[in-house]
């Protein structure tokens, strides 16, 4: 290697260094440290952490709350991801068309994303309030249905959170779809129109396949989001009633910072990382091969 190219190498590494250092410090090292901690017991005053091997994992498998929370989270993911993506796509196609007040509509759909999570959660908390909340004003006063404690009942609380999340995410994903839609040249639509393709046919054969890179990106984000939601839960339910609305990350928070069982929290975190890692691999591995990138 001659001097010039050695210098170029050094330059390159120096440019990468700040980002790499931050990543290592706040992402890679904590992940490895967490893995390490999950093989130890929690240190308590005067009692240092002891090597316990897989004991924490054994405890986790026997923990009914863990299974309940994991189940909740899967339902939550299944409820939010497809609906919010479908809704985002639908809204994007709609506001991409030539309609009056298009700019206003785009803004309106994006508003949930701009609002702070805590504020959003409080607004929805009011919507769900029994007897005088917005929802009850409709179901009880207008339809004459019996009053119902939406967030206080095990059977409805998770569905309520799912609705809030969809409302919050669909607008955000819409922006990505909208950008992708606008990158599709209008002449493709015109060529299809001359060939006699209807709107649905064109969407199915041209628009949707061309949006696949965006769909993958949005899907990865949606999966990650569905496993890292905490703020809504903190404000609206605190995981209750009876853990019916507790999701994995919220349970980790509970275990780690309320029960101070840091070893078990580390163990649960490893499960979360494994889930996210596997889905990301599956998504990129499977879908990528079938996606056309322009």
């Amino acid at each position: 290697m001659n001097r010039a190219s050695a210098q170029a190498q050094i330059h390159g590494w120096l440019l990468l260094l700040p980002a790499a250092a931050l990543l290592a410090l706040f992402t890679h090292y904590p992940a490895l440290a967490t893995l390490w901690h999950s093989f130890y017991s929690s240190p308590k005053g005067g009692r240092p952490a002891l090597w316990v091997g897989l004991d924490n994992y054994r405890g986790m498998v026997e923990d009914p709350v863990f299974w309940q929370v994991l189940g909740n989270n899967l339902w939550f993911a299944a409820g939010t991801i497809p609906v919010s993506i479908a809704l985002a796509l639908l809204m994007a196609v709609w506001v991409n068309g030539k309609i009056a007040g298009r700019g206003f509509l785009r803004l309106a759909y994006f508003t949930p994303t701009v609002l702070p999570m805590i504020a959003v959660a409080n607004i929805w908390l009011f919507f769900y309030t029994p007897t005088y909340g917005l929802l009850e004003q409709f179901t009880v006063d207008l339809l004459g249905l019996p009053s119902h404690n939406w967030l206080g009942t095990k059977s409805t609380v998770l569905a309520c959170l799912i609705v809030v999340t969809i409302w919050k995410e669909a607008g955000f994903f819409m922006i990505f779809y909208l950008a992708a839609l606008q990158a599709i040249p209008p002449s493709l639509g015109e060529a299809a129109a001359i060939e006699g393709a209807g709107r649905w046919y064109y969407f199915r054969r041209v628009t949707f396949p061309l949006l696949m890179p965006t769909t993958l990106f949005v899907l990865v984000n949606a999966v990650i989001n569905s496993f890292r939601l905490v703020d809504h839960i903190v404000v609206m339910t605190r995981g209750g009633p009876d853990n019916a609305s507790s999701l994995l990350l919220y349970y980790i928070y509970d275990v780690g910072f309320k029960f101070w069982d840091s070893a078990y929290a580390s163990t649960l975190t490893m499960v979360l990382l494994a889930i996210l890692g596997t889905t990301a691999l599956l998504q990129f591995g499977f879908l990528e091969r079938r996606i056309h990138y322009r």
């Binding site: 040249p185 002449s187 015109e190 060529a191 001359i194 060939e195 054969r205 041209v206 061309l210 056309h292």
Partner: peptide, 27 residues
């Protein structure tokens, strides 16, 4: 009528064959 566009307006994700028979499939 058929039309050839300045930008060709080929569907980038479809093969040459599928691009050519696009209209035949529609019909």
């Amino acid at each position: 009528v058929s039309m050839v566009f300045q930008s060709y307006a080929l569907f980038p994700h479809l093969s040459v064959a599928e691009n050519i028979v696009f209209g035949l499939r529609v019909r």
